[in-house]
Computed example of a mutant assay.
Amino acid sequence: MSLVNTKIKPFKAQAYKQGKFIEVTENDVLGSWAVFFFYPADFTFVCPTELGDVADHYEELRKMDVEVYSVSTDTHFVHKAWHDASETIGKIQYTMLADPTHEISTNFQVLREGQGLADRGTFIVDPEGVIQAVEITAEGIGRNAEDLIRKLRAAQYVAAHPGEVCPAKWQEGEATLAPSLDLVGKI
């Protein structure tokens, strides 16, 4: 079952953010756009390249009123240790959610059965807590923050412009479509 157009489920988790341990709930997510960025584990290989890529674009995401929540089944203590040990992870300013109970990974349907690890999953959530986009990739396939930003811009545009949709490869400022009977078979 797809999670698109469903509201995120309640959760409570410890997190590491900018040198502090904090608690985060689903209520903290409401009111602005959010990205939940699941990955299998800290101290691994593809994961730091992805988290570092998002960190390099974090300022741009914040200007778009987007908050990022990376999530793995590691504890907040492990997140801190990884942040302190890795130059790539050390530049992260966004919230690193800990999910050792698997509550969040289960809610987002990315928990690998019997492994205790999350799949690579990206979820774009609107300010009302409704999931607008989902991307799940296999273990060895890293994600791209620039494409994530493109999808976020499209989701924000569609939310702000009812009756319009963004075609393939749409970039901010390009033409959109207004679905109607007149367009059927003409694209």
Rank of each mutant, 00 (worst) to 15 (best):
L3V: 02
V4L: 03
N5W: 02
I8G: 00
F11N: 07
A13F: 01
A13S: 15
A15P: 12
Y16G: 09
Y16E: 06
G19E: 13
K20N: 15
E26W: 05
D28F: 12
V29D: 05
L30D: 01
S32G: 12
F38P: 10
A41K: 13
T44S: 13
C47P: 05
T49I: 08
A55S: 15
D56S: 15
E59M: 10
E60S: 11
L61M: 15
R62D: 04
V68K: 04
Y69E: 09
S70P: 02
D74G: 06
V78A: 13
V78L: 13
V78S: 14
K80D: 08
A81G: 11
E87P: 07
E87K: 14
T88C: 00
T88V: 15
G90R: 10
G90H: 10
K91H: 09
I92R: 00
Y94F: 15
Y94Q: 13
T95H: 08
T95V: 12
L97W: 02
L97P: 02
P100G: 08
T101H: 01
I104C: 04
N107C: 06
V110M: 01
E113F: 04
G114A: 11
Q115F: 10
L117I: 08
L117F: 00
D119Y: 06
G121Y: 04
T122N: 11
F123S: 06
I124P: 07
V125L: 01
D126Y: 06
P127I: 09
I131F: 07
V134E: 11
E139Y: 01
G140E: 10
G140C: 02
G140H: 01
N144W: 09
D147H: 12
L148Y: 00
I149S: 03
R150C: 03
R150M: 03
Q156S: 13
G163F: 07
E164G: 06
C166W: 02
E174Q: 15
T176L: 06
A178F: 00
A178N: 04
P179Q: 11
D182K: 03
L183I: 11
V184T: 12
G185E: 07
K186E: 06
I187G: 01
